[in-house]
Design a protein around this nucleic acid. Sequence first.
DNA 1: TTTAATAATGCAAACGTTTCTATAATATAT
DNA 2: ATATATTATAGAAACGTTTGCATTATTAAA
Lengths: 334, 334
Amino acid sequence: MVTIKDVAKKAGVSPSTVSRALSGNASVKESTKQKILEAVKLLNYRPNFLAQGLKEGKTKTIGLIIPNIRNPIYPALARGVEDTAKKFGYSVVLCNTDEDVKAEKEYIQKLRKRWVDGLLIAPAAKETEHIVELQKEGFPMVIIVRNVDFLANAVIIDNFRAAYDAVSFLIKTGHQRIAIIKGNQQLALYRERFRGYKQALLDAGLPVHEELITGDESDSVQWSLDGYNAVYSLFAQNIKFDAVFATTDLRAIGAIRAIKDHGYKVPEDISVIGFDNLEFSSLIDPPLSTVSQPLYDIGVRAVNKLLALINTETMQEPTVEIMSSELIIRRSTR
Amino acid sequence: MVTIKDVAKKAGVSPSTVSRALSGNASVKESTKQKILEAVKLLNYRPNFLAQGLKEGKTKTIGLIIPNIRNPIYPALARGVEDTAKKFGYSVVLCNTDEDVKAEKEYIQKLRKRWVDGLLIAPAAKETEHIVELQKEGFPMVIIVRNVDFLANAVIIDNFRAAYDAVSFLIKTGHQRIAIIKGNQQLALYRERFRGYKQALLDAGLPVHEELITGDESDSVQWSLDGYNAVYSLFAQNIKFDAVFATTDLRAIGAIRAIKDHGYKVPEDISVIGFDNLEFSSLIDPPLSTVSQPLYDIGVRAVNKLLALINTETMQEPTVEIMSSELIIRRSTR
DNA sequence: TTTAATAATGCAAACGTTTCTATAATATAT
DNA sequence: ATATATTATAGAAACGTTTGCATTATTAAA
């Protein structure tokens, strides 16, 4: 490996001069600068990042901790994160926890060995002491997508509101018996969506029917199966319903399939509305009505926030930023 | 930040003893070891990764350079990479090039500042001197998914064979006029798939009709549009066809939509076969027949190969590893 | 017990930078 | 020409580790 000393020798100057010439934050004679640049080119010198980082106490790297990049909501988020990080000269380390708190803890441990300057976390589940801990220590960190039950820096959407609006839309368009596929109630985000569903019914003077509340609590990648099974069992029990509010697009897709398999039509017989607005949700048949989460923008905002945190030494009161979601009506609702 | 010296002081020993106690590759008395461990716990000491890396000359980090994590073939690959890297104590830095050679070069430059121990690259396009360069320098690197026109360490599938088999299947099941949506011919992988298509026709004694070769050369994320447009224009020109071989699932989905929009049925009137076997390809209507790429496994193999490269000092002849693809027949073909 | 072998520990150098301090070279004002 | 201010450069210390070498403490053998 070629070091700054080699360059210095080649150019006939001291290492410190090379450093100054390269960093540009001290004056060095133009002629020597040229010599140095020449030597750099000749030897194909690249400053050693580790040495620099060690000296400066930062790595220009952030960690992105998410449950699973294969869950189709995360690629867009990751892109938002990576693009923004890159823009400011930062790199992104990708970590998948598979909803496992233990894995999450291990990653945090690992990344904290002065590895990364800050962390973006979509927390695994309810247990969050390790995150509280992190915050207490003043480590730069922002929570994304999934809110957490204490005040922390976060960039999220208002899941209650979004669900409320989606269900209200269904009600307004004449649906009376709206089933919900409720998602893992361990996660605040699904609890919120569930709450939004109930509140919308209540506010419209409609009853919340126990039998229309479906979906299991598991969190598998094959989420669409949950949607399929939920609707399937509704039919099996001969429960009538004229709409389905699925708490994810994947579940909505499963629901649509189950409805079709039973010989009903979407949206003529049963309307289906999803949540997420995945890239391919417009591609299915019928194109899915859904709530759009600004995932890319969440990533962008989160990185901005994180870098602000990294670059201020004074500890500030955490703030949560609510990004606006949007109801997208396509053709799975009448 | 708490350093090894702090621990040493607290435990009443020298830093070197702490280092030895922690690394475990030298004998240290049990009682002192306990004292040290206690001090570590008490002070919440974490070894500084940068210092370690600087000393040892490696970072236990690899770079994953891909066009775009939002392209749905990459999440599975990334997961394979990350899981395997993690298994061996490595971290993964994610880089999206957007098919831009310049961005790719910049990333390689950046990551090479002794940042990463090795690189996994799905190259952007035809221009590959910078990759040749990398290889010449003996930098650990393996090419993934997209083969390259020189001999390099790579983990790929046999795109020619896979396309050949898919089209042969179509022919065997009675299709005569098979259209292809050909993909960006700048990329070897699409050239290979195209070649497989032609060869299958030839070997079956069928003509290669110019008018059935469709699709533009662009590489946008909204790939399904290419499929839609291609089939749309076939109808517009009143060209008859009884099957479509789409070079990606996304294009296949677009194609199906266009076929439906024109009042035809898949697969009764026209069969469609895709390529990739994305997670949601089984979820569309009808479930898509396609060629399955073992993306996760490609990631796994590639990391194994890369780590082998990293851990051998002697430069070896590059080898390319062909993973086997699989024809998955669902319901979009008759 | 004394000596030899082994185990445990400390010291200092090294990894490749950056930056502080000091000195040398040059330019500017008198 | 001399004194002063400025600019350019070198030297050395520091960042937090690990490790080779030297030293000291401990154990085993005689």
